[in-house]
Design a protein around this nucleic acid. Structure first.
Length: 471
RNA sequence: GAGGUGGUAGCUCAGCUUGGUUAGAGCAUCAGAUUGUGGUUCUGAGGGUCGAGGGUUCGAGCCCCUUUCGCCUCCCCA
């Protein structure tokens, strides 16, 4: 017998897990809808060229490529070329567009950009969309890192207003408040980082400086300084960077300090200004800008399409540490890659699988998640079967969830099944009950049992469920 | 790409250091105690190519080599 397994980095979800995941999806969906976002869905696979070159070198490597099924269909010379390329691919580390011309989606942002370009005539801009679908990365799995995982994205395209940024920050803070996860939403700006590079006299080295700076938490200033030196940043530049990361205080105080340091850089000043303005809008929408939001110049974010504000969410409870659980930012002209110029966008993403892990670690799932059917009818065979089914129908018509055991198995076995499934009510339609046109209704949690008529039974259940909902 | 650790019953694992009759436990399943009353008990039963291949040995789950798959860490990310 072959031992069954799922592919590396993927998981099955048992009923109880799906219920919990749905709790997260529903919370996010409600939030997105509240802010006026509309749902879309895109295919699991994209053309490889749609994805390549959008996520940086590392990202390209992690794209799951799909075998070209033409390998089995084409009959001409093209097939021979395919076979030759296939030989090369299978014999060594080699990638060929003849062999793979499609790939599994790596995130939801790039497919969304493609969607916008393709549907530009039908879309009313600014367009707010949300999307909740799985993505795939050919990464090596680790704890809280999967090869198949779900993202929930909200993006707005076709508007440059920083009100959009403020709204998305509200969605972040609001959603995690509802989920009761303590978070810090780090906010930075690519423009500030560009300004920093300018002040270092090395504007072309923005990405390198950013990558070094991103490690501040892990390797400290001495480590960062060493790395900056290795990357060719002069001492005056390093001192400027040191000065800026030493800035402490409230977000407002930090921004004042950043503004002073950035005096000599136009783009740096613009970065400071846009964060300031975003926070002003945020406050106008009713948020406390000093609560969860943390202006953090060391925040990097690898995706190279970001151009404006960038954000990242982490859980602040050390017991719930699983890396970042959300991220996003503004990308000017992302659709320009697909031929639609002048459309700016901004978006955020929720990492559902990691949020699940956090909720699980911190024990934050509600105690009473809907567990499905609560009413169970025993199958006592013979005429009782039909009797039971007619009752089942009436219960369902009353809008209640119910099921009946399909086999006339032993009484004991059916009761054990009911216990394991966690039904709240068990109905016993046996010979003696049927002869009186009644049933025994057992309250499974207390063990109490009563003999009731059919209609009464439905009513009792209806009232009990009503009370349960209100409680 | 680099390192660590593991694979034994359907599931979770013990056994390995020190090779030696028929490889164990808990949970789960099935049957019975109890023919129409679940959770707790008690009794019994079924279930194993010990990841795969090779080597050493009179003898290998255990020692050696090769290989494969999983988990974890670094890098990077959600």
């Amino acid at each position: 017998m072959q031992k069954p397994s799922v592919p590396q980095g993927t998981r099955d979800f048992a009923p109880a897990v799906v219920r919990k995941r749905q709790y997260i999806f529903n919370t996010l969906k409600t939030m997105f809808e509240r802010y006026g976002f509309q749902p879309i869905e895109t295919p699991a696979m994209e053309n490889l060229e749609t994805l390549m070159g959008k996520y940086g070198e590392e990202g390209d490597r992690l794209i799951f490529k799909i075998l070209n099924n033409g390998l089995h269909e084409k009959k001409d010379k093209a097939r021979n070329t395919l076979m030759e390329e296939w030989e090369k691919v299978t014999s060594r580390s080699y990638s060929s567009t003849a062999v793979t011309e499609r790939a599994l989606r790596y995130d939801l942002t790039i497919p969304f950009a493609r969607f916008v370009v393709m549907n530009q005539n039908d879309i009313a801009f600014p367009f707010r969309r949300y999307q909740m679908q799985p993505v795939w990365r050919a990464d090596k799995p680790q704890s809280s890192r999967y090869r198949e995982f779900w993202q929930c994205d909200a993006d707005i395209v076709g508007s440059n207003s920083l009100i959009n940024e403020a709204e998305l920050l509200h969605i972040y803070c609001g959603a995690f408040d509802q989920l009761k996860v303590p978070v810090a939403v780090k906010v930075n700006s690519r423009k500030m980082l560009a300004g920093l590079a300018e002040l270092c006299g090395a504007p072309e080295k923005m990405m390198e400086i950013t990558i070094a700076l991103d490690k501040l938490d892990k390797i400290g200033w001495t480590g960062v300084e060493k790395e900056l030196t290795e990357r060719g940043i002069e001492e005056t530049g390093r001192n400027t960077i040191h000065r800026i990361i030493q800035t402490t205080g409230t977000n407002a105080e930090k921004l004042v300090a950043f503004g002073e340091i950035m005096q000599a850089s136009e783009i740096g000043k613009a970065g400071v200004e846009e964060i300031k303005k975003t926070l002003d809008y945020y406050a106008a929408l009713g948020g406390n800008t000093e609560h969860q939001l943390k202006v953090d110049i060391s925040l990097a974010r690898g995706l190279n399409y970001y151009t404006g504000i960038i954000v990242e969410v982490v859980c602040t409870d050390p017991n719930g540490a699983v890396g970042s659980i959300g991220g996003g930012g503004r990308y000017d002209d992302l659709t320009g890659l697909f031929g639609l110029k002048g459309i700016s966008g901004v978006g955020i993403s929720f990492g559902v699988d990691r949020i699940y892990d956090v909720l699980q670690k911190l024990d934050l799932f509600p105690a009473h998640l809907d567990s499905g059917a609560k009413i169970f009818i025993l199958n006592l065979g013979g005429e009782n079967e039909i009797y039971g089914l007619s009752l089942l129908r009436k219960i369902r018509e009353a809008g209640l969830n119910a099921e009946m055991y399909a086999d006339a198995a032993k009484f004991d076995k059916q009761m054990k099944y009911a216990n394991k499934r966690g039904f709240a009510y068990v109905i016993i339609p046996g010979d003696s009950e049927r002869e009186q046109n009644k049933v025994s209704l057992k309250f499974f949690l207390t063990g109490q049992q009563q003999l009731v008529g059919i209609d009464e039974c439905v009513n009792v259940l209806k009232i009990a469920e009503q009370n349960n909902m209100n409680a």
